[in-house]
Design a binder for these strands. Sequence first.
DNA 1: TCGTTCACATACCGGGGGTATGTTAGCGTC
DNA 2: GACGCTAACATACCCCCGGTATGTGAACGA
Lengths: 196, 196
Amino acid sequence: MVLTRAEQRAATRRALLAEGRRRFAEDGYHDVVFAEVAHAVGVTKGAAYHHFDSKAGLFRAVVAEVQQELGERVAATADRQDDLWERLRAGCRAFLAAGADPAVRRILLVDAPTVLGWQEWRAMDDAASVRHLVDALADLVDAGVVAEQPVEPLARLLSGALNEAALWLAETPGRDALAQTEQALDRLLAGLHVSR
Amino acid sequence: MVLTRAEQRAATRRALLAEGRRRFAEDGYHDVVFAEVAHAVGVTKGAAYHHFDSKAGLFRAVVAEVQQELGERVAATADRQDDLWERLRAGCRAFLAAGADPAVRRILLVDAPTVLGWQEWRAMDDAASVRHLVDALADLVDAGVVAEQPVEPLARLLSGALNEAALWLAETPGRDALAQTEQALDRLLAGLHVSR
DNA sequence: TCGTTCACATACCGGGGGTATGTTAGCGTC
DNA sequence: GACGCTAACATACCCCCGGTATGTGAACGA
């Protein structure tokens, strides 16, 4: 089968992205060598630079991909709930569960802030994940379930709490660590609920 | 004045530590070149390797130093309060305020987890900061102010929330962002308080 | 005083990110 | 359908920088 040029290009790019994602998740950004990613895909380093301007550029693309997937997964889980409050809880729990994926942990939570810089990381995180959290909180405020207040500081606190907890859970052997964390999170969230 | 050999060694080490701290805070781990740190102190790269086994080793020492200072500062602020609940609040607020220091942000919160690995970072963070948080929460549980529960997941959630919020505050121009964050934090904490 | 130690300097190596320069195959154009 | 252009690759190279191996002179103990 003969491929058109555009198809070939797209296929190579996809392959680099997939291989990069595998290695970044496994070894961490620093220990991944760009040329090896290229060769693993059957392409030389020089060729890989036609698709990504730098090693960080490849990483950035991988981050965007993983972010996107995570955001959608969490949002989908949350949307399965009808009650607004349960939506918030479900979203948070889905995020904690997503930390089981090494790609999420190593790439998004550990390496991304350093490699891309915290500001850029935050912007991407905002667009993909925290935005949903902000929306959910805003809905709750509108519904009168949560007291009127600026919602972004709250979202930042919760986002940080979830990130850290997800990392912690991944390295904590205890069977019930997840359940305990979810319970602790519920207690914190309860502080937001006007009538509880 | 002539220095003894031990004095000379200690002085060089201190100077490397100070210069490293400055640069790590300013430029981030990756953009700091080890040889330049050495030369800025009036010493060659080879000499610097007599004091620190690697660039990461220097960074590790800097992290320990900053961690130590931060932990002490936060604990001192908290201990100024008599009431256990106010102690917790004061400690959290002191931590948020500490995020104003670029060294804390860039070195401790952004770079340390990647450079040292998340596990080692966590161990150091535990020893210097989170331990105080765990103690404060445990005291509150003992006093019956906070419901009986495993205290570590809670501490992890709070630690993550504070880390993220500290970073966010540093880049958020709004005058009242700090006040809003403190208020949001109070609401979350309120969920822990049995009689509120 | 003399040998040893140790805090440094000097010189070198090699990995790896990034670039400059071919080369060949697909694509539009006449 | 030949021809020139473009673009997706390969090849070869640079050089920065972390790390190491080796030299040197001054302080220290005996």
